[in-house]
Nucleic acid binder design. Structure first.
Lengths: 350, 350
DNA sequence: GACTCCAATCGAATCGATTCGATGCTCAGT
DNA sequence: ACTGAGCATCGAATCGATTCGATTGGAGTC
């Protein structure tokens, strides 16, 4: 088997220079239709399937690949419908621009740095990582790779795609307040990825690495003042159930009348815990979520929640990435959220 | 701002040749520790973050990127726990080899060919696409990119990672047969991605593009002979419900006593349909799935299903990809499945 | 002291395409 | 017929690293 044919080989066979052959393949109008035909015919004869993308990348100075960082292991990240929608939004825009999506996930929350630096990236989107001091972020910036953060680190020169977590959940809080709730608690997503779960004290809270988690706590406290916060080890239904038990399996007098979970997944877990304990929702306890994920399997229950535009977030992130690659500036984006009142919130028990 | 520093610049600054600098960065033992230090120091001064991956790729002849094709739009593909587990298995192995994962999804089932050919891939895994005549597959092969198929096209020179769909579901069938079932029906995943749903006739069936779908039908018929097959438009709970209604909302005399869905997701939909119609499972009708997906939200119901090793499938596919990239042969892999008897199968109604 | 040998380092070719400025050709205008 | 414009094509430099074979310097040996 001969060596794989190159553009030069095709050009020679077609009797043109390699520059012309290149033009022919890129569909430039600067080359005659007849010539193009000739080049394409030669390519077909030699079994040449088009210019080598790597060589083209080198010359062009870009690879057409955008990296997307997922902090967690995929298996866990994609249990979260929001991550999936986000990614879907990203692919939609990248696809339209003909760019590829390189997925970088960390086994244990930390995508291996060495590996990241070996990847030919035009830009990187930090999708669900919250660390301001992420070494990968610094390394990429050092290499001159544009970076975009989605609800992530707020760093100079990094466009931030964010949603209005705080006032969204505050609005939800006011809804509960108006219903008469005074004693509420919140179930938080992980403050850091170290497997910790349980009540959150001040020093733990100070070390929270995720902006959205912080903001969602603050939003609750904007309305109710300091509230008990129970942290979960991951954004999973079972974790929500554990936290729910911890909060609800106590004498009624000390039991919160409403539990604000920081995600719909966690809220589903809290609902399960309530059911387990024989509590009726919302008669005995109200439960709310965040995200507006499409948890069809909760039907006919409709979760009271804050709906966030996950796909729009993805689209905005990808659009920012494409802008930066093109050398244009990319502004921060701040997306609104909306309150959705379902069947899981009602007046507190008398 | 000066032009981005290059290896040559760093080498000059460190007072060594660029070949030595290259060796220093690749951690070769052929270079003295002192020299390496000097090179690294020079790099730090110049703000050089390491060799450019694209240039290195060109020289080495490989990019370190493996493409993974998802036939559907991500949003739908990742609703399926099996896809996610598969991908997780792939990332696990690729990560261990320091390779990256480029996700290629089609908006409408067909990843844009032009775009695929622009991507610097060392190999490609066809994850959930079933088409023997996929133009992308042919194009990649023409370009000399090794291809691996997961439950996908059975093409010469393409290692196939497959599971024992047929005998797995046949075993499930025998379980039902032993329970006394004689009148069964099956709910199929899409035979092609064209949005068709409803009863499947012979000519539609002949045009089925997905091996696993075909095999799972055959497995049922191995036990029961010809059975009614209802196709769904996608592998989603709501689709399972539609199909379930079609099969179950008929006079009891004509109603199947067991419905074998081709996935757990579809089975969940069928369960919902049964509940809607006031049918008890398994007293009035048995329902089974396939995959062994972790559908926690069905609890306490435990689906009778065939458990397939999705992650192992992903690992095998990735391992095959790495082997082919390294120039080694990659054999076909055929993974076993196991029957899991849950609470959704029982004797038919008297 | 001359010679061998080995380790460290260097030079130069190479990977395969893109692109800019130059060249040559044809054709229109006068 | 000569000039200039315009268009298709070509040559050569370039992108930035890797790698192989060659070279150099120094240590070890007799």
């Amino acid at each position: 088997m001969a060596a794989r044919p190159t553009l030069a080989g095709v050009a020679a066979r077609a009797g043109v220079s390699s520059s012309t052959a290149s033009l022919a393949f890129s569909g430039s109008p600067r080359v005659t239709a007849a010539t193009r035909e000739r080049v394409l015919a030669a390519a077909a004869e030699l079994g040449y399937a088009g210019p080598d993308p790597i060589a083209a990348s080198l010359r062009r100075g870009r690879s057409g690949v955008i990296g997307v960082f997922i902090g967690e292991r995929l298996l866990y990240a994609f249990r979260d419908p929001v991550s999936v929608q986000l990614l879907d939004g990203i692919t939609e825009v990248l696809g339209a621009h003909g760019a590829g999506l390189l997925l970088l996930a960390g086994d244990s929350g930390r995508p291996p740095l060495e590996q990241i630096l070996r990847m030919p990236l035009d830009a990187a989107i930090f999708a669900t990582c919250g660390l301001e001091d992420d070494p990968a972020l610094a390394a990429l910036q050092a290499r001159g790779v544009p970076v975009i953060a989605v609800e992530g680190p707020d760093v100079d020169g990094v466009p931030l795609i964010d949603i209005d977590d705080r006032s969204g959940i505050a609005e939800l809080g006011r809804h509960l307040l108006a219903l008469g709730h005074r004693r509420v608690a919140t179930v938080a997503m992980p403050l850091r990825l170290d497997g910790t779960r349980g009540p959150v004290g001040p020093q733990r809270r100070a070390r929270a690495h995720y902006r959205d988690v912080r903001h969602r706590i603050e939003g609750v406290e904007d309305v109710f003042g300091p509230v008990p916060v129970v942290e979960t080890a991951s954004n999973a239904v079972a974790e929500g159930t554990l936290a729910g038990r911890a909060l609800l399996d106590v004498p009624a007098a000390r039991r919160p009348t409403a539990v604000l979970a920081q995600s719909d997944i966690l809220a589903a877990g809290v609902l399960a815990a309530a059911t387990e304990l024989g509590l009726r929702v919302p008669a005995d306890v109200s439960v709310t979520g965040f995200d507006g994920a499409d948890l069809h399997w909760l039907a006919p229950t409709l979760l009271t929640t804050v709906v966030q535009p996950s796909e729009a977030k993805g689209r905005a992130a990808a659009a920012a990435a494409m802008a930066l690659v093109a050398g244009e500036p990319a502004p921060d984006v701040f997306l609104p959220v909306t309150l959705r009142i379902g069947t899981t919130s009602g007046p507190p028990p008398a």
